[in-house]
Simulated scan of single mutants.
Amino acid sequence: MDNLKQISVQLEEKLDSLSQPLKPHLPALARFLLVVTYLEDSFRILFQWNMQVQYFTYYKGYSSFFAYIFLLAITATMIICSSLAVMKKHTNIAVIGLGVNTILQSIFYGFALDWKYLLRNLSLLGGLILLASESYITMDKKNAMFAGLPSINKNGTSTYMTLLGRVLLVLLFLGLAFGGEEMSLVRLIFIAIASVVCVMVVVGFKAKFSAILLIAMLSLFNVFVNNWWSLHHEHPERDFLKYDFFQTLSVMGGLLMLVNIGPGNMSIDEKKKQY
């Protein structure tokens, strides 16, 4: 047991040393990855405008007027709110806009009851909650610098938001673990490792190290499973794989955000610091 603990500490120290050059750019990279699926989705709608309108009018039965207004509204919201999030301007407004956009799309596109789609969306919302939590943490730190203003509140809004974000963020792995039809040995190993690491993220034990492991696993999954670039442009599965690829990137952005801000006060890591 002591050997495993020592190995874990050594790995964390090694990862920390390797990540030093990236640390100044980590928050910006995390924010960009978090919103990349929304940017890709907005450009996809613009480039496939007629197809999108046809889907709403012929397949969903909505009026042309509704289709045009809805598509314009969600496209503008995704572009504006994603830009605000990347620039770190009005973060809470950006998070609310993207969150509402996610919910509305799942309803009007008719995927709200698809459990795999639902888990992916909940993971995206978890990433957005962590983004909002970062803004609260930054605000608390700024307030703590001025005399007479409260210091960082250990039981404040950011604490509960970080906990909720951690829980929602790992739901993507449930869809990846149990969403396929065949259960191979490789998949069983993936499920076993991912399950343990996801629990570690949820309870906040070695949370930063665990988040990095999940990022590595998702990177491999994206390259070898969601390889939409390997399919012909007219292949029926290409758009679905591309959509999954960018959604997975956004979940990775949420995990990077967790690495950046930490698991929060409601975590084992934080409790251990108090003893």
Rank of each mutant, 00 (worst) to 15 (best):
N3P: 05
V9M: 07
E13W: 01
L15V: 07
S17F: 07
P21Y: 04
L22Q: 05
L39R: 05
N50K: 13
Y55F: 15
F56K: 12
Y59G: 12
S63D: 12
F66T: 08
A67Y: 01
A73G: 08
C81S: 11
A85C: 11
N92P: 08
N92L: 15
N92A: 10
I93F: 09
L98H: 11
S106T: 06
F108G: 13
F111H: 13
K116L: 12
L118I: 12
L118Y: 13
L125W: 06
L131H: 05
L131T: 10
I137S: 05
P150I: 05
S151T: 15
N153H: 07
G156A: 02
T159E: 04
Y160A: 09
L163N: 01
L163G: 03
L164H: 01
L168C: 04
L171N: 04
G175N: 00
A177S: 08
A177M: 06
M183R: 10
R187L: 08
R187Q: 09
L188G: 09
I191A: 01
V197G: 06
V197L: 10
C198G: 03
C198S: 14
M200R: 13
F205I: 11
F209D: 02
L214K: 02
I215K: 01
I215E: 02
L218W: 01
S219I: 02
S230C: 11
P236L: 10
K242S: 15
D244A: 13
V251Y: 11
V251P: 08
M252E: 15
L256N: 06
L258W: 07
G264L: 08
M266V: 04
S267G: 11
I268T: 10
Q274P: 06
